[in-house]
Design a protein around this nucleic acid. Structure first.
Lengths: 332, 332
DNA sequence: TGGTCATGCGCAAAGGTTTGTGCAAACGTT
DNA sequence: AACGTTTGCACAAACCTTTGCGCATGACCA
């Protein structure tokens, strides 16, 4: 048998579909008695509203889109978990669109959001995206957009990031406090604001600490493998660095690999500090000292902001920067 | 201005909406001339069909749901990547529902799938799910369902798994080939079929190799932390084991942590082999020998099966078992 | 008793698209 | 010239639900 509709129930109870609708939605215009009859029969028939019709009528889809560069094992899973939970708890559903870091896919995904009439969009930008004009179709339609993690500075929507300069400062400060003055730095995709900010923080705090900035001690890498190779090169340079700063878990993994390959002991022969959401550092022995930024918090906050904008509780673009804290473990 | 509808275009061109619809869909019943006029105006107005109305009319949603226990950093990301890509390439969109390993959430998620009129469902079961009756609402409506990874044996839908017994055999065989006879085993949630199968394979191959099975050398753990503790306990036992088998990345991480804590060298003092999708083993030095199962392949195959069922190219329940291969690295 | 008001429900439109059917005009055949 | 076929479009129904409005009915009050 096909799924029962509101009309079926109406026919069976000799009622008008509108009354059934109101009964099911607990509208006061329907008597308690009728309401019960309707709801009981609905229960019995296993009635579930046809969401497609509801959506059309109500002109919304109940969908929130998550535009993300691609799934990776480090930052994203906890961000996802948070977003899905927050979104779910508020009766929306999450649809995922990957850009694979290409602008063209990101543009397509924006169009898809428009077609699906999503009610809000969470965006972590593709690295190819150097400006935001391709989001215009959404913004024109007043579709709320919140950027998080991988953002661009010039944006008039809400955003959630971490205080990149500040956490980098904390990391380098901690290394300096332990007496390190020759510090290697591993950074990610230089197209990303997040990379540029952390790099800026790195240079800035070195200057503040009167530590000379050495171009040759820093490198940019796209993944663990590249990070490892770059780390090896940096460690060749004499006088040797005594510590590494890595701006992500991925690069931390690469650096540790390089360090182990050179059979250096952590932290006696070389220290390492990372920016991390705290999971990967647990893998190692000693565990890796890091500045803890919670992917979960970023995701949750981004979702909360978006829901706020959707509900029109938030009118103006808010730029939230989450604070992070130093987690001292054994690697410094 | 509001988004233009098909009716707007019809009015502007003095046509009937039906003709406009057919023109846009390249229906042969409309003359090339009219078709061009319509398509040009549509282009000019930036017309995009109201997907909500299309969905209602066509009685489909273009959505495929992914029901998953929860996002974690190991297996899931690559599975996700694969599924999203496959689904996207076929014009569907992916909506994600987490169960947090609870049966109640899984039941709710099934209802949501039904309400949203999703056209297919990919399921990796919650550990609480010991039978599949809560999927009846979907199966009754003939909604295609494909189970993958975390499945139950008794199911009449398609499924994608890896050959658990066989890969465990390969792992243990490899350890035995290197002379190991006291082998510790770390297994996951004993509620999961995947765990039971791998455990069964473990015992079976020990028997075949005439190695006595020692209850005290195996343990079950829910996460890395527990895995680490269990590994420590197992290593206390005399005569000491000479090798570890771990059925997942997560447990491998725990085991290595325990090994490093005891300052044992890999592989000289203790060997370790894991079932893994090959990413986490790269973190370590030496890299961890493992049986490579591709999360990406599992996801891609599951998505392909589902699409096949949706297109009615696949009629009967197919149970695909992916093969895996031994990747010899430095830990055995 | 006539008027006001609240209650409970039905009617019909609306949301935008797709599609079966019908119909007129144009064309071709005998 | 009469008939059949094709072409190109219009009409209206259908998908299912929600909602503004209107209309009875009965209660209440003056």
């Amino acid at each position: 048998m096909n799924r029962p509709t509101i009309t079926d129930i109406a026919r069976l109870l000799q009622l008008n579909p509108s009354t059934v609708s109101r009964a099911l939605n607990n509208h006061p215009d329907v008597s308690p008695e009728t309401r019960n009859r309707v709801q009981e029969l609905a229960q019995e028939l296993g009635y579930a509203p046809n969401q497609l019709a509801v959506n059309l009528r109500k002109r919304h889809s109940g969908l929130i889109a998550l535009l993300v560069s691609e799934m990776n094992m480090f930052f994203n899973p906890s961000v996802f978990r948070a977003i899905e939970q927050e979104v779910y708890a508020n009766g929306y559903h999450l649809i995922i669109l990957q850009s694979n870091n290409t602008l063209i896919r990101e543009q397509q995904n924006v169009q898809i959001c428009r077609q699906l009439a999503v009610e809000g969009v969470l965006v972590s930008l593709a690295s190819e995206a150097q400006e935001l004009s391709h989001f215009a179709p959404l913004l024109d339609q007043k579709v709320p957009v919140v950027f998080f993690d991988r953002i661009l500075p010039q944006n008039h929507s809400c955003s959630v990031t971490i205080n990149d300069v500040e956490i980098t400062r904390q990391a380098i400060q901690h290394l300096a406090d332990q007496g390190h003055r020759r510090i290697g730095g591993l950074f990610g995709d230089p197209n990303l604001t997040i990379t540029r900010e952390r790099f800026r923080g790195f240079k800035q705090v070195l200057q503040e600490l009167n530590i000379p900035f050495e171009e040759k001690h820093i490198a940019f890498a796209q993944d663990s493998e590249q990070g490892s190779q770059q780390a090896l090169k940096i460690m060749e340079i004499e006088p040797a660095i005594t510590a590494f700063f890595t701006m992500s878990d991925e690069l931390m993994v690469g650096a540790v690999q390089a360090i182990e390959q050179k059979r250096l002991r952590i932290p006696e022969e070389i220290a390492i500090i990372a920016i991390s959401d705290g999971f990967a550092p647990e893998f190692y022995n000693p565990k890796i000292t890091h500045i803890r930024h919670s992917g979960y918090e970023v995701g949750a906050e981004a979702a909360r902001l978006l829901l706020g904008v959707i509900r029109e509780e938030i009118k103006d673009p808010l730029h939230v920067q989450l604070e992070c804290k130093l987690v001292k473990l054994g690697s410094v």
